[in-house]
Each structure stands twice: as C-alpha cells, then as structure tokens.
Design a protein around this nucleic acid. Structure first.
Lengths: 167, 167
DNA sequence: ATTAATTTTCATTATTTACTGAAAGTTCAA
DNA sequence: TTGAACTTTCAGTAAATAATGAAAATTAAT
C-alpha cells in the first residue's frame, strides 16, 4: 500500500468507526486528518482534502474544539486560522473519556438517583424495579471511579498496574 | 414520583442514552422494558407498551437476541413466544463489552495492522503516520486485554482489585 | 390437509441527522 | 473607515436511518 492510500484509508475508516460510536462521520474524519497532519492546517485544506463544504468544516471543527481534541494555532504573518490535534493518543483517549463521562455518565447517574425516589415502595413490582435501578447505579458509580483513576493515572502506570493483578 | 411514572421515565431515558451510544432508540427501550418486567412478555405487550409496530418490535427483538441480551422463553400451554432479559447488570455489561469488542475493536486493530504495511517507509511524513497508527494500535491492544480481563473476572474481583492499587 | 394463530420480511414512508452554500458577521490592514 | 480576507450562522436540502403495515412464511392445533 502507498502512503497516500493508507492515509486515505485511515481517514475513511476512522469516520466509519466514529459512526458506530455515535460520533458523526465528518467530525471523526476531520480528527483523523488532523492526527496524521505533520503541520497545522486551515479550514480550506480540510474542505479540499475531504471535499466537504465550508460550513460543515466550521461546525465540526468547533465541536472538536469543544471536545478538547483540536486547537486553534496562530501562524505569525498569516491571516487564516490553523488547526492541530494532540498526537498523544493516551491523552486523546482520556480526553474523550472525560467528556463522555461528563456528558453521559454523570447525567445518567443523576437520573437513576431520581428514579429511586418513588412514592410507594411497597407497591407490587416496586422492589424489582428498585433493584434494577440501584444495580445500574452501582455499576455506573464504579465505572465512574474507574475512569477517574484512568484519567489521573499515566498510561503505563494504569495498564501495567491492572495487568499485574489479573494476568 | 409514582412507580409507573418512574418506569416510563426509565424506558425513555434509556432510549435517549442508547442513541448517544450509537444504539437505536427503540432497541434500547425494548431492553429497558424487559429489564424492569418481572415476568416474560410477548411482542404484543411490547407493541402496546411502547406504541410501536409489530415489524419494529420483531426486528429489534432479533437484534437484542443477536447481542445476547434477550432470550426467547417458552411458556407451556401458550402458543405465543415470550421474551426476557437477564437482570444481572454485570452480566449485561460484560455481554455488551464482549459484542462491541468483536464488532468494533477487533476489526479496528486488524485495519491498523494493515495500514502499517506501507511500501516506502522512508517517504516524507511516513514516520509520523506510522507513529500515530502504531500508538493507536498499542492503546487498542491494551484496551482489548483489559476488557478481556473484565469479561473473565467477577464484578467484585475486578473493581475492588483495581481500586486496591490506585486508591 | 386445513386453517387459524403467530412470526417474519421488506418495499414504502416517515423521521432524524448531517451538509450545503450563500448571506451576515467579524477582523484587520491600509 | 473602507474593503478585502476570513469566519460563522442557519434556512433549505440531501442523505442516512428507523418505522410501518400488509403480505408471505411458518407453526401447530383440529
């Protein structure tokens, strides 16, 4: 395989994988493109490389910045804005974890907490319902602590630490 | 909050969370409904509870069975098929991990392996590209082992084991 | 074997989600 | 302070995804 071909393949596949994870295809592709760009690039570069519209690039870049995965870069002597993505994959992963935790896990735990406050806990079927809700809450809480540990730990410390016990 | 209200809330929210994770809303709702049903229920029950069509129920139930989250149950003396979901949340979680690993992580690692086989590794920018690809592959590989450990371990063994080192 | 009950399929339709492009907004050099 | 370079917004449109419902297939009781 040629390098250019491999890069294209990487971008496309990254987009496809993104889709499966509930991330929009273009956003994932832009992130992929930035990951394998050795230098910061502009909105026009992205438009050209992925053959998508200016508006599309703009909105998705903003989202990526919102996720903390992409940064604006100022190139002196240049009017245009340039963008880069952090190439440290462990950092990318922890950043994604951090955001998803905030956007999804935390609200879910909050909801489950509310659902436990039903009026008549003696009612037919209430016990079973509460058990399920509480079990999910417990599991979610443990996932939460676990992910916090991952975010704080260094890559090697975390992975090798866990492997140490269980392998 | 009344029990019925809480159940409805649970089903709806579960559907919304599913959407964020790339799982279709209805499938998540059906799973939620089955999770909080104390007894096995039929396709007609699901149609009625969620006010959705027969075809929709049927296809999503089959998907859920394909994910190993739902089972057909035969009720003696009854012509209709009944369905249940495993209520053990840890098992539900490991089952989902197992499936997503198979459907998503494994193919991704395979792809990344292929991308490392580029022809001219001395080419301009090849080194940087290979570094990113290899880093992702390494992280993916570690996630893979980690998830395998989770699948094999008992809930308490796994969580408390990890907490023991890092807390 | 017939038929009534039930499940499955899938072409069509509806809904949701993403993208475009042009207009409005901003920034900054002259 | 004007206007060219550039960025942002968003109404309209396109594409992707999910749901319907009726017909076909299957199942099992008589």
């Amino acid at each position: 395989m040629k390098l250019e071909e491999a890069k294209q393949q990487f971008i496309n596949s990254w987009g496809a994988f993104g889709t499966q994870w509930g991330i929009n295809r273009t956003m994932a592709q832009i992130h992929a493109l930035l990951l394998i760009s050795t230098v910061p690039i502009t909105q026009d570069d992205i438009m050209e490389q992925l053959t998508i519209s200016r508006g599309n690039v703009n909105m998705n870049i903003r989202d990526l910045i919102g996720w903390g995965l992409v940064e604006r870069v100022i190139v002196s002597g240049e009017r245009k804005e340039y963008f880069t993505a952090d190439k440290n994959i462990w950092k990318v992963a922890t950043q994604i974890i951090k955001e998803r935790k905030k956007r999804e896990l935390d609200p879910m735990l909050k909801l489950l907490g509310q659902l436990e406050n039903i009026e008549d806990k003696k009612e037919e079927g209430a016990a079973e319902f509460l058990t399920v809700v509480n079990d999910i809450k417990k599991l979610g809480g443990q996932a939460d602590t676990l992910l916090d540990i991952m975010i704080k730990a260094e890559e090697n410390k975390f992975i090798s630490g866990v492997l140490k016990i269980f392998k």
